[in-house]
Nucleic acid binder design. Structure first.
Lengths: 136, 136
DNA sequence: TTAGTTGCAAAGGCTTTGCACGCGC
DNA sequence: GCGCGTGCAAAGCCTTTGCAACTAA
């Protein structure tokens, strides 16, 4: 789990207690937390941490490519620490639960040149939607 | 183009001038407008239309399945009138331009049962990202 | 030391809501 | 005329920003 912190330090990241706590919260498990949830969990360990710092830190982790920003609905963005393994998301239409999934093949391959309109296409994000077992 | 208005009327939609104008704006072309852009275009024809009414109307069109809500970035949602033809989106990472595209095959088929975790998967949305010709 | 980071509070963008008036059916 | 739709303004949620105090390296 300290892979993340080590990588960050070796990149010259200034390691403050706030940043360490945010990184630890995200490193815990493959959840998909909102900025506010990250703040809440971080505040359990470091009560005075401010929302602004959480937003700043999340933004940097995204820029560094260590965390993915996920907009599954129109509400708050969620942050996905599982950035090292390509994966897609399966979202419950009822309760909003998110699971990481790995479809077969490369989604990019499904877009033929004739459908690329001169774009230099780099990535494909897939969001599967349906009802989870609990909501069905 | 009045397909849309007729469909709505036959569904018992109360037809006001505001709703007609919003429907006409969306029916014009396959753009991907924000609520505010819809409001601006609607206001060209009906100056006193309020933002709240535009939001209400867009929400209803989405509920009725006549318009798709697209969250391509963390900013404002966009509304896509091309709801009758299955398609995906190609977004420019630099300028945000959106194009409708049609990949080969059904994206749903790429998710094997073992990766569905008991979900009743209904839809797959794909967002391709890259640089458009103008930004490359 | 010193440049980068933090916290606070305020502002900002987008969207929803409450309520009285207005209008399609 | 009835009931839903509208406009206005205010509030709401999520996020960013300005600035003085602080601190890791």
């Amino acid at each position: 789990m300290s892979d993340l912190l080590e990588r960050l330090r070796s990149r010259g990241w200034r390691l403050t207690s706030q940043r360490r706590v945010v990184a630890e919260v995200l490193d815990g498990d493959h959840v998909h937390l909102t900025a506010d949830e990250v703040h809440a969990r971080a505040a359990e360990r470091l009560p005075e941490i401010s929302r602004a710092t959480v937003y700043n830190t999340l933004g940097e982790l995204v820029t560094l490519g260590e965390v993915l920003e996920v907009a599954t609905d129109g509400r708050a963005k969620r942050y996905d620490p599982n950035a090292h393994q390509p994966h897609q998301h399966l979202v419950c239409s009822a309760c909003g639960t998110i699971r990481d999934v790995r479809p077969t093949g490369d989604p990019l391959a499904a877009l033929p040149a004739a459908e690329r309109f001169g774009f230099d296409v780099a990535t494909a994000e897939v969001t599967y939607r349906g009802l989870c077992p609990d909501c069905a």
